[in-house]
């Protein structure tokens, strides 16, 4: 159905970071938000993306914010970096979603919700690490990769799933040795994200054994946050609730804390 060669080919074709965004990211990593904004200003698509993103209801601004410098100022260093990665990811989104009945508008809403809720979680956990902050932006890459690899295999997967509750992540792992989180991590590598961020993305599948300390704790929070969002009506209808396997035992010990940070669905 999907071979290791298909996956390797997919990884090969991940586009590199566009020059303007790469430069803006470099400035953002150094905390130079004014310089980052000047760079970002040069890319009209990025400008429009930033404007649309921060004016989504989840950010809660009463008046429209449109100036890139102002947007970066409001977001702060860590969130600016994260938002630039979100933009990069938006460049990978398909024109038409084939596997999931999803619109790009809904996908961007998911990105925004993940970013905002992740910010709340990191505040709760007293974590200020920019790399950890950015990690969440790569998680929706799993959905993009899944749609790209499985779009032409929809019928076959339906037949498999009629007899066994298998998720796409497990199917891919068993067929190719890679899972969707590995592929999201490959995208992170291509975009020169830090090793720490990439390791965190991989571990968010909840299936890796032997995780310890902060990496395990953050992976638990990302995993539960994903399923919190995938349980919302829009994403249930889009089929995202079923696309990866929820590791309920993996997140059990953080559930009570999670329910204090994130409002009920």
């Amino acid at each position: 159905m999907i071979t290791q060669e298909d996956v390797v080919l997919y990884i090969k074709n991940i586009p590199p970071t566009p020059g303007v965004v790469r430069q803006a990211l470099t400035f953002a990593r150094e905390g130079e938000l004014i310089k980052a904004a000047k760079c970002a200003q040069e890319d009209p698509a990025l400008r429009l993306y930033l404007k649309t993103l921060v004016n989504r209801p989840i950010y809660g601004f009463k008046n429209e914010v449109s100036d890139v410098g102002q947007i970066f100022g409001i977001l702060g260093v860590a969130a600016t970096q994260q938002t630039l990665y979100n933009y990069l990811l938006s460049l990978l989104t398909p024109k038409k979603w084939e596997l999931f009945p999803l619109t790009n508008h809904q996908f961007y809403d998911l990105q925004a919700s993940l970013s905002k809720e992740w910010e709340n979680i990191l505040i709760h956990l007293h974590i200020k690490d920019k790399e950890v902050y950015s990690a969440i932006s790569l998680i929706p890459a799993t959905i993009i990769v899944c749609d790209a690899l499985f779009a032409s295999k929809k019928k076959e997967v339906e037949q498999l799933r009629s007899v066994k509750a298998l998720d796409y992540n497990t199917i891919l792992k068993r067929l190719s040795g890679y899972d969707l989180f590995d592929l999201a991590a490959e995208i992170g590598k291509m975009w020169e994200m830090s090793d720490k961020t990439i390791a965190l993305i991989r571990s968010a599948s909840g299936t890796h054994q032997g995780l310890v300390g902060e990496q395990k704790m953050l992976a638990q929070w990302i995993h539960l946050l994903l399923f919190y969002l995938f349980s919302q009506s829009t994403y249930v209808s889009a089929g995202l609730n079923e696309f990866i396997d929820f590791q309920i035992d993996f997140v059990h010990d953080i559930y009570d804390s999670f329910s204090q940070v994130v409002p009920s669905i």
């Binding site: 009629s162 995938f230 349980s231 919302q232 396997d245 669905i265």
Partner: peptide, 24 residues
Amino acid sequence: RAVVKGRVGIFHLQGFLDGNNAPS
């Protein structure tokens, strides 16, 4: 869709389930 094993059909839900999302 329910997964059918032998004579048993099972819906495998994941995550959170409340009155808002259940109909979806």
